[in-house]
Design a protein around this nucleic acid. Sequence first.
RNA 1: UGGGGUAUAGCCAAGUUGGUAAGGCAGCGGGUUUUGAUCCCGUCAUUCCCAGGUUCGAGUCCUGGUACCCCAGCCA
Length: 562
Amino acid sequence: MTEHTDTPTHFIRQIIDKDLAEGKHGGKGENIVTRFPPEPNGYLHIGHAKSIFLNFGLAEQYRGTCTLRFDDTNPEKESEEYVASIRADVSWLGCQWAGDVRYASDYFDVIYACAVSLIQAGHAYVDSQTPEQIAANRGDFTHPGTDSPFRERSAGENLALFEAMRQGELDEGTAVLRAKIDMRAPNMNMRDPVLYRIRKVRHHQTGDTWCIYPMYDFTHPISDAIEGITHSLCTLEFEAHRPLYDWVLDKLEGLQSFPSRPRQYEFARLNLNYTVTSKRKLKQLVDDGHVDGWDDPRMPTISGLRRRGYTPAAVRRFCDMVGVARADSVVDMGMLESAIRDDLNRHAPRAMCVLRPLKLVIENWPAGQVEQLDAPMHPQNDAMGTRQIPMSGEVFIDREDFQEEANKKFKRLVLGDRVRLRYGYVVRATDVIKNDQGEVVEVRCTYDPDTLGKNPENDEGQGKLRGVIHWVSAAQGVPCEVRLYDRLFTSASPEREEEGFAACLNPASLRVLEGAIAEPSLAAAPVESRFQFEREGYFCVDRDSRAERPVFNLTVGLRESF
RNA sequence: UGGGGUAUAGCCAAGUUGGUAAGGCAGCGGGUUUUGAUCCCGUCAUUCCCAGGUUCGAGUCCUGGUACCCCAGCCA
C-alpha cells in the first residue's frame, strides 16, 4: 500500500543536470523552462500523456516552469473544439501551465518580423515555382536538388513579394517564402525548406488577420525562444529537423532578441500494443463510427481513458513506468492495466454487483425478514469505513458462480455443497429449478444462521467451504447497466495489418449487460466515481447514468490466477 | 539509394572514468486471505544484435557487418 513517489531519471534529466552543473541557465533549476506544444487538430491520447508528464514533470522536479502552447499554424485542420478538449485534458491530468495558455498564433507578428529580417540578411527568398516544380526540384535521397530560378532575387524584390503575399495579392500556391540554405544538402529538410505559405482561410484564433501562415519548422524555434524555453522536447521523427531548428535560431542571432536559446532533444514516442496512437487513425475510428466518439471508453485518448475510469495518477504512474528513452518501443497494454489496478486497488471502495443474475432462494430464511449486514468499504483500509448491505430470503448470485456439478477446482456454489455469501452467511445449495430448455433459472438453498462472521461449527466430515461468492438481495438490489470493455483490436499491432487497422477491430470490444443488479449503496454513486465490484473488477459510473438506472463501465478486470 | 537514429529477458528500461548485468510489467513456485483480488516470500539474462580486436578484465573502447525506425507536405 505504499504510494509511488520516486521521480524517474532518464537521459533528458541527465542533460539538464549536466547543463546546470556547467552553469547554463544560471545553474538554477528554476530557470528550466519546458513546454507542451500540441496542434489542436485532434484529441490528446496516451502518447501525449507521456510528453505532458515529461515536460510538466521536469518543470515540477526542477521547480522550473512549463507552458502550454497550441501549435496552431495550419488553420485548415484545427479548431476551437480541439483547443477546448486539449485544455480540459491537460488540466484533468493535473498539470498547471505557467501563465496563460499560449498560441503560436500569438507570435505571428514576431514570426513575420523574423521572416523579414531573414530576407534582408539574404537568408530567405520568395519562390514563385509551382508546388509541383518545388517538389521536383527538391531531388530525392540519391539526387541533389536544383536551385530555384527565383533563388537569387534581390532582398528588395523578396521584401516586396513577401509583402504582397501578406496583403493577399498573390493566390495560394503561387508563391512561398523559402529559407536559402543548400539544395544539395543530404538532409532533405535543409534543401531550402518552405517557411511561409499562402492560405486564404480563417484562423480559429486570429480570424482573417492573416492569409499567410508560417510552417512548423519556422514557427517552433521562434515560439520556443520567445517563451524562454530551455529544453524543447519532441519525438524522434523531428530529429532530422533539428539542424533547421538550429539554423533558424542561428540566423536570427543579432537580428532578433529572445530570452533564451532553446535546444531541441528528441525522445521515442509511446506505442501501445492492441491499439492505435495516431490522431489520424483515431479520427478515422470516430468518423467511421467504429466507436462512439473521441471519449469512447475503448479509445486510448485521454478523455476515453477518463471515461473508462482511469485516474490521472494511474496514467502518470504508467508514464513513469515506461520511462523516457530513444529506442522505438511498443509497450504492453498490461502495463497500463497494472497501473490502474494498482491505483484502484488502493483507493477504490468495494461493492457488490451481480452481472448475470441467477436467483438464489434461501428456504429456511425467516419469511419477510430483511437483515442489515455491515461490510467494510476496503479490506485493508479501515479508515474508509463501512456500509450496510441488506440481506433477505431471495438474493441474486452470478450465473457463473453456480454449477450442478464441478470438481474441487471450482471454488463456487455447487449443488449439495456450501459456499459463503460474502459478508454474510454460509449457504448450501439443495435444489435447482429449470426452464423448458433445461437451463437453471433458480437455485434453492438453506443457510446456517450461526455463520455470520465465523466459520461453521460441528463441521466434521464436511470439508472446507468451497469459497466465497458475491450476491445482492433481490428486493433491495438496484437494476443497472454494465458495459464490459475489451481491447479495441484483435491484433497486437493494428497499424501493421495489411488489410488496414479497421480490419482487425474486435467485435466484442463492448458487451452490454442490461440486467445487472447492484447493491443499494451504489444507487446514488456520482458520475466518474470508481469502485471495485468484488470478484469482478474495477468499474466507474458513466455519464449515461440516470437516477433510477446507473450505468457502470468496466475499467479493468481483477487479475485472475486460475 | 544519400542523410539521421536505435539495438540489454516475452514487454518497457537502468547500466555515465572499462571491474564482473538495477527496477517495473508479464510469467512461474510457495505462504496469508470471508474477493480465485490484495499482500508476502522465492524464482526468472554465465550474458548485452553478430563477428573480430584491444585489455588482467568489455554491455561499456576499436574495426567490420546485420536488423529495424525516421526524412523526398506549401502537415505537425
